[in-house]
């Protein structure tokens, strides 16, 4: 409870502070980003587009988003603060009020990309989402799965999701400085980038984003704290960044919508 109050206070402060700081910007309608979540724009830029999301929103149909993830998708015992829930809240704020947005989460804990991908056909039949955000790579990195096999599995998974008629966003691993000497992350980041490029789908670079926050001192990701506050704040920022990323990739920004 206390944490929630604190969080809303932070959000409120961010909400108050940011518009005045950006008063000269021409888009006053956009909800403010809390200072802790600030990111250079290139981390949220993608060339690939989300056509189906764009069409759904333009037609005013409900936007159904499915996040397929692993244990780092949620925060133990506070799911409401995890990034999918935060993304849903922000999307509802930013999209037209008439637009229904629903985010569901499918956790595939301790499953490699290949194991997760094998469930996709059935999963898509059940959920029929417009957009799938597939977060993967961590389990493969921990088990040091052959990066070529990993790439093959991600490729297959993406194809299955696309065949089922959904737009796809790939999300890569967390930046985890404590375990940097123990988990070799780069091959998995590289291969996800390759698959995203080959399929012309947006890649949400969670790793680079979290590293940016850590390097700029916005968050201390080395913190050994056992409390959930840090995780909640990071997930809030991730949810915001992800919502912004989806809106940009679907060209749903205030300026773009008018065209």
């Amino acid at each position: 409870m206390k944490a929630k109050v604190l969080l809303s206070l932070i959000l409120l402060c961010g909400g108050l502070a940011a518009p005045s700081a950006r008063a000269e910007d021409a888009a006053p309608a956009a909800p403010a980003t809390p200072p802790a979540c600030e990111l250079p724009s290139y981390l949220l830029t993608t060339d690939s587009q989300l056509h189906k999301v764009a069409d759904t929103v333009k037609d005013g149909k409900p936007l159904e988003i499915l996040v397929i993830g692993s244990r780092s998708t949620t925060i133990p015992s506070s799911e409401d603060s995890s990034y999918p829930a935060r993304m849903q809240a922000i999307l509802k704020e930013k999209l037209p009020p008439s637009e229904p947005v629903h985010v569901s989460v499918e956790i595939q804990s301790k499953k490699t990309a290949a194991e997760a991908a094998s469930t996709f056909v059935k999963l898509m039949e059940e959920k029929r989402p417009t957009l799938v955000i597939w977060q993967t790579g961590t389990v493969d990195a921990i088990r040091s799965i052959d990066p070529d096999e990993f790439r093959g599995a991600v490729t297959e998974g993406v194809a299955a999701l696309q065949n089922a008629g959904a737009d796809v966003v790939l999300m890569n691993l967390q930046y985890s400085p404590r375990t940097e000497t123990m988990i070799s992350v780069p091959p998995y980041l590289d291969n996800m980038r390759v698959v995203a490029q080959e399929h012309d789908i947006p890649l949400f670079d969670r790793f680079a984003i979290m590293r940016q926050w850590n390097d700029q001192g916005q968050f201390d990701l080395f913190s050994p704290s056992r409390g959930p506050e840090l995780a909640k704040q990071v997930h809030d920022c991730l949810g915001r960044a992800l919502a912004q990323f989806v809106i940009d990739a679907a060209h749903l920004g205030p300026a773009q919508q008018q065209n």
Binding site: S72, I142, T179, L221, P224, S225, L230, A231
Partner: peptide
């Protein structure tokens, strides 16, 4: 050492290592 002293809930998954 890290395994016994580090329990940040943000990184429960990475601790699988």
């Amino acid at each position: 050492y890290v395994a016994t002293s580090f329990e940040n809930p943000l990184y429960t998954e990475e601790m699988g290592i």
